[in-house]
């Protein structure tokens, strides 16, 4: 049940390596298009707009932060659901930023040479090398901000991965062989604990996706089928909120027990005391 998550500074290269690794190992390549289509159908959303959530930040003129977070939670739920299946290779769904602490999932970052990325960009947009360089710098900055805003993480930090491979001198074929070799190591074999960790993450994402519309600021943790929801609220609203959350979460498949914890909403409390 080992799986692989591949991240890259070049989406094209990352996709190619992920696809070739899946073929080499006989694993299933988790096509981001399929995952996004499934989410769009299930939630009745526009697929193209959904796809943009993975690249762009919320803006005051476009999608609001609230909708952006909702859609991200839907993608997260679908990706984790697919990762529960056996032997998957995942790329392009930002899974390296939210799949944490699952020892049977190998996380690899592929670094492409700047020259190659520039060439890809220049040919895709039919622009000069100088213009491509400027656009690439802007895209890197935007990507960095996206990671920070979506998951409060820096995706270039090597400690987030098990292995980082640069394709400056190592060829794509060799990188695939290296990844295929590493996944066979004993440490990446699924164990009861690592499977449980993934199950908890998956359940957590399902619960979050189901309550995010009504409780966007709620934080959810799952452990052994017990769900803990932390939510900001006023004292007088506690009973009402507990009932609402328990009703929403209680019916979700795999949930045994729901706990609702409250954080005092000081801002609202202060605002109300001045009325």
């Amino acid at each position: 049940m080992s799986s692989i998550i591949i991240a890259s500074d070049s989406p094209e290269t990352g996709r190619r390596i992920a696809d070739e690794t899946a073929k080499f190992l006989g694993y299933t390549y988790m096509d981001p298009e399929d995952v996004l289509s499934a989410v769009a159908t299930k939630r009745n959303l526009d697929k193209d707009k959904l796809k943009k959530v993975l690249d762009t930040l919320p803006s005051s003129f476009g999608r609001t932060s609230r909708v952006w977070r909702q859609w991200l939670a839907f993608i997260q739920e679908a990706t984790l659901g697919r990762l529960m299946e056996d032997q998957m290779v995942c790329h392009g769904l930002a899974a390296h930023l939210y799949v944490m602490g699952v020892s049977h999932i190998l996380k690899v970052r592929i670094i492409t040479s700047e020259m190659e990325r520039l060439q890809i960009l220049a040919s895709q947009r039919d622009i000069s090398a100088d213009k491509a360089k400027k656009i690439m710098k802007r895209m890197e900055k935007q990507r960095h901000q996206w990671c920070l805003q979506a998951f409060q993480m820096d995706e270039t930090d090597p400690s987030r991965y098990d292995l980082v491979i640069s394709l400056n001198q190592i060829t794509a074929k060799e990188a695939v062989k290296t990844i295929a070799g590493v996944i066979k190591y004993k440490k990446f074999k699924p164990m009861t604990y690592s499977i449980k960790c993934l199950e908890d993450l998956e359940l957590e994402s399902r619960v979050r996706a189901s309550i995010i519309k009504d409780h966007p600021e709620a934080s959810v943790t799952a452990r052994d089928k017990t769900i803990t929801v932390k939510v900001k609220t006023l004292k007088r609203e506690r009973k009402k909120k507990t009932a609402a959350i328990k009703e929403l979460v209680g019916g979700i498949d795999g949930v045994d027990y729901v706990e609702v914890h409250f954080i005092n909403d000081i801002v609202r409390q202060a605002a109300e005391s001045f009325r």
Binding site: D157, P158, Y161, V164
Partner: peptide
């Protein structure tokens, strides 16, 4: 700490 300076980074 910039990974692009290396061919391999092993954690």
């Amino acid at each position: 700490w910039d990974s692009s300076l290396y061919d391999l980074v092993v954690h």
